[in-house]
Amino acid sequence: MKINSLEKTSELKLVSIKDIDIKDKEFLITFPLRSDTLINSIKEIGIITPIILRDMQNRYQIISGFKRVFACRELDIKSIKAIVHSKNDLKDKEAFYLNFYENLTLRSFNIVEKAMILNNLFERIKIDTKEYKKKFLPLLGLDFNKKQLKDFFGLLDLDEKIKTYIVEENISLKNILQWMRFTKKEQKDIYRFILPLRLSSNKLREVLLFLEEICQRDKISVKDIIDCIEIQDVLNNMNITVSQRSSKIRDLLKRKRFPQLTSMEKSFADIIKDLKLPKGIIFRSPEYFEEKEFSIEFKIKNKEELKRVSRALLNMSEKEKISELFKMS
């Protein structure tokens, strides 16, 4: 679609902010709408690029420039420079493309914006599947089948706070889709739960998975898990750092999800503690206690140290506790 000819039918003019219909979000592909950077920039040097509007006779519809209009309102700026197209000269599809390509050249889209764009193309512009798959998915760096696409649109129904969190924390698509597997209420409970934990992508994935699987297995809600005393104690403990809190929470969830494994790990750690191994000797269990072989690691610099380690190992082999350890695998 070529839209060069539109230059002839549009005009650049100063438009009063109050004449712009801010409720009409048909062409909105920007999230979130408020940007401190933009507000500060406008305060400093004003608006550099004109916005694009469509003249709907009794009002102006925003095609591109939502953030700028909202910033102007906040800064009490009364008018804004705009390229105005007439309703007849700029059809919906052209208007959408104009907005999309203008944004595409200037910035990258976040995940919520990508969902807004695809949803617009699919539901409103009714673009044909081939163009959609071959052109727009690659332009947005996405690769979906039909079912995944439907799930992806669910992102638009997320609570505003969650969407903002997703964008600000750059949450991965995999984690978002995992989050969306919960009910609306649970999504909000999870948001409140993870907000103070500041989890990395992998850790967030682990937490979401643990929550989902514990809920499904024990037929309980996310709130039931979060409200349990042990979790609340950690969340309310102000004497630990954020990273300590997140680590303790993950451990608690792991214990709930894998009770037998974590109990074996604890027994192993307790026995090792009882054995009082000298510094520098590390006794390792087989991974997940699946294989038979345990391993011992130590570092030595000379003959004396070798003798010291040998004596310690011999001493350890004579303790009763050591047999309990080997029974574990």
Partner: peptide, 16 residues
């Protein structure tokens, strides 16, 4: 309680 085993496959924890 499914855990990765030495052949790369997930299985229930051995005691289970």
């Amino acid at each position: 309680e499914l855990i990765p085993c030495s052949d790369g496959k997930m299985r229930y924890l051995k005691p289970i």
